[in-house]
Design a protein around this nucleic acid. Structure first.
Length: 476
RNA sequence: GGUCCCAUCGUCUAACGGUUAGGACAACAGGUUUUCAUCCUGUAAAUCGGAGUUCGAUUCUCCGUGGGAUCACCA
């Protein structure tokens, strides 16, 4: 059975790159009817961020990336790691290192000065038994290092095929830190084996440390899982996506009002495509169609333009009811909002602004003209050079439209259009000279749905009230 | 610097060694339209360079160039 995992460290928010890794691991597990495990890699107590484990889980759930097992916490499994570290120690595949931070810094400084690649010189490996015992007795803190053999290691990456590294270039990796906690490398390997992970799907930044992991599997007598190293997500300047150059937390995009469908669809296509010209995919469709061998090798620039388009698409695709439910929490945060502003027309209001919304966050502002009791008119808005509308024209348009609409009983788009067209013809003005003032009177906005639709959606009572109020204001 | 990875329109990408190098987003130009959107039509836009293999390279090989990742008691 296929078992994948997502193994973030709780050092802050969930990175969009992390989200994509989680998504791919999830898709691969689901499509193979396998298991998806969540594991928290919290072996560095210094970098732990309060609340990050909770928010990590919330975000994954928000995107419906549900895991079958976990979350497991590495900080609760330290006994296991120590056991295997000791085993390697006994077998001579690892050794204790008593070097201090200063020793190591000094060593590295010397090496860089001599233009050699910085690498641990194994001085502690040569320590004789008496000296070693003396240090242990004196309780000198030590780390456990993995002994890296001078030989080649190869493995097959699902995305990059044959990978080849040589031990001469790899440092004797620390396995257990002096505080007794394991490093990523040890904990990761032990857990992946212990949890039966069959496919390690992770970012490309892990490629260089994979040989260490392979040697660890071998020294522990285990069969390594299959690896798939995902291409990086990039800044516009093609460096690794970073906070300096924009929002990188998945939450940021939720807060910006992007739909989960859009974010998921967008992120799935950064590095993968189905090989056809289809590009609109739901999570379920992705489960069906995803494949690791269609994953790209090169990094992908995290460019929001496509996300905006996808978001608009999914916004328009929603039913007004679903959309209204998503907007509601945002509406409730508005200072002007109160529950009794809602009436049975609400869904029609939502429907009328739907094609205009770029994100959920546009909702409150676009709905406000429909919901507010009184608009605080901005007189300058009524005037439009382009529409050839001056103050006198505004007053005239409103004065002429009002009585016509008052006598109109059939308040449908067509009837309203016919009614106003007659007035316009009689006045001998241009459409815009009538419709622009009406639109501003109805919404106090520069952009809005069409006037006929506006009138119908608002209803006779509210719309006429708006027109009268506006007329009073303009005449005052 | 060592090691490793990568390379098609601005961006995401497609193309059994044979295509007028395709699509989408963005851009631009039109159409629909009272505004803004939506919607429709169209235009422009790419194989990093050089060798080699081949009847034929975007595709395979080598070299170069460019970009990136990584070299911690962080993950």
């Amino acid at each position: 059975m296929v078992v994948t995992r997502f193994a973030p460290s709780p050092t802050g928010f969930l990175h969009v790159g992390g989200l994509r890794t989680a998504l791919y691991a999830y898709l691969f597990a689901r499509q193979n009817k396998g298991k998806f495990i969540l594991r928290i890699e919290d072996t560095d107590q210094k970098r732990f961020v309060e609340g990050s484990v909770e928010s990590l889980q919330e975000v994954l759930k928000f995107f419906d990336l549900n895991w079958d097992e976990g979350p497991y916490f590495q900080s609760q499994r330290t006994e296991l790691y120590r056991k295997f570290a000791n085993q390697l120690l006994d077998e001579g595949k690892a050794y204790r290192c008593f070097c201090t931070e200063e020793d190591l810094e000094q060593m590295r400084a010397d090496q860089t000065a001599r233009k050699i690649a910085p690498k641990y010189d194994r001085r502690c490996r040569e320590l004789n038994p008496e000296k070693m015992q003396a240090k242990l007795d004196a309780k000198v803190p030590f780390v456990i290092r993995q002994f890296i053999p001078y030989e080649e290691v190869t493995f097959t990456d699902l995305i990059r095929d044959e990978m080849r590294f040589h031990g001469r270039d790899v440092d004797d990796q620390v396995l257990i830190k002096s505080d007794g906690f394991p490093t990523y490398h040890l904990a990761n390997v032990v857990d992946d084996h212990d949890m039966g992970i069959t496919h390690v799907i992770r970012g490309e930044e892990w490629l260089p440390s994979t040989p260490k992991h392979i040697w660890l599997y071998r020294d522990l007598g285990w069969t390594p899982p299959t690896f798939a190293h995902l291409p990086l997500l990039l800044n516009p300047d093609r460096t690794k996506l970073s906070k300096r150059q924009g929002d990188v937390a998945a939450e940021d995009y939720i807060k910006k009002g992007y739909l989960k469908e859009a974010i998921l669809n967008f992120i799935a296509f950064l590095g993968w495509n189905p090989g056809t010209e289809e590009e609109l995919f739901t999570l379920d469709q992705l489960v069906e169609r995803f494949s690791l061998d269609r994953v790209q090798k090169g990094g992908a620039v995290f460019n929001l333009e496509k996300l905006d388009w996808l978001n608009g698409h999914y916004m328009r695709e929603k039913s007004p009811k679903d959309l209204a439910e998503l907007i509601m929490p945002l509406l409730e945060r508005e200072p002007w909002f109160s529950k009794n502003l809602l009436n049975d027309q609400f869904l029609t209001f939502v429907a009328s602004v739907q094609t205009r919304m770029k994100s959920l966050n546009d909702g409150p502002a676009m709905l406000r003209p429909f919901l507010l009791e009184n608009l605080d008119y901005n007189e300058a808005l009524f005037l439009s050079e382009k529409m050839k509308v001056d103050k006198a024209m505004v007053a005239l348009a409103l004065e002429q439209a009002l009585p016509a609409l008052e006598t109109l009983n059939d308040y449908t788009d067509d009837a309203i259009k016919e009614c106003l067209t007659k007035v316009i013809e009689k006045m001998g003005v241009k459409n815009g000279q009538m419709l622009w003032p009406l639109r501003v009177a109805l919404t106090n906005e520069e952009y809005s749905p069409g006037v006929f639709e506006l009138l119908r959606v608002m209803g006779k009572e509210l719309s006429l009230k708006r027109l009268r109020t506006a007329l009073d204001k303009i005449k005052a």
